[in-house]
């Protein structure tokens, strides 16, 4: 097409039309956005139950600040607020998905009630198990300990136990029998004498010799059996 006055005129009209079209679309989009905002909670809930996940996003976004601020006003801790907010919505999601939601009440008061109950649960739990936080001057772990062995001591203890079993195996049979019954099976000397058919004194004597022999072997071979 030759570039003439007419050409520029036509181009001008097209551009004008395009901008008009753009304006119309823009206003339509705005209307759609306005409509989106105005969708009420019950409609969003129905949509969510029907499977529209975006409806839940809209619901959370809409009530996020109010619910979070409500929780924060009670617990005064950002981390706990996040936890309770999350637990609240997990309950909401479960109830909605199970179809157990009652349409009679309004959504926000219902969610607030769940949050409120969870806040009470949080305080109850904390009262039963109060959390102590150590400071620079005092650390609770300096007076409180865990009676379990650490992994290194546990390995050493296992090693000693195994070594000791080998040593016990080296003892004469009668002494070994008494020692195992007394130490490992936790039997009294009376029970041992009944089981082995010897007198209590003999059993005591065998135990004594067993220990003496063990000590002798340990000292002769320079075995260290301490943790």
């Amino acid at each position: 097409m030759p570039i003439t006055k007419d050409y520029f005129f036509k181009i001008g009209r097209i551009t004008h039309k395009t901008s008009l079209f753009k304006k119309r679309t823009l206003s339509l989009t705005k209307k759609v956005i306005v409509m989106e905002v105005q969708i009420e909670d019950p409609i969003l809930i129905t949509r969510y139950i029907a499977g529209d996940e975006r409806a839940l996003e809209a619901l959370i976004d809409r009530h996020n600040q109010r619910i979070s601020s409500f929780i924060y006003s009670k617990v005064n801790d950002r981390g706990i607020t996040e936890d309770i907010f999350q637990d609240t919505f997990i309950k909401v999601i479960r109830t909605l998905k199970r179809g157990a939601y009652n349409e009679e009440g309004k959504f926000l008061p219902w969610v607030m009630r769940i949050a409120h109950n969870l806040i009470i649960d949080h305080f109850r739990k904390n009262r039963r198990m109060p959390m102590y936080q150590g400071s620079d001057s005092f650390n609770i772990f300096s007076v409180m300990g865990d009676d379990k062995l650490n992994i290194e001591s546990q390995i050493i203890k296992d090693q000693i136990d195994t070594d000791l079993t080998f040593l016990i195996d080296e003892l004469p049979a009668d002494q070994r029998e008494v020692l195992i019954m007394r130490i490992y099976k936790d039997m009294s000397f009376k029970e041992i004498s009944e089981n082995t058919g010897v007198s209590i004194n003999t059993a005591l004597g065998r135990m004594r010799y067993a220990l003496i022999n063990l000590r002798k072997v340990i000292s002769e071979n320079d075995i260290i059996l301490t943790n």
């Binding site: 996020n64 600040q65 979070s68 996040e82 999350q86 999601i93």
Partner: peptide
């Protein structure tokens, strides 16, 4: 002043993912 708090986007994202993965 009343403190206005909002749950983090990660928390919201977690809830949306939880919702997607939950099947009854």
């Amino acid at each position: 002043q009343c403190d206005l708090v909002q749950a983090k986007p990660e928390t919201v994202q977690f809830l949306l993912n939880f919702s997607k993965s939950l099947e009854i």
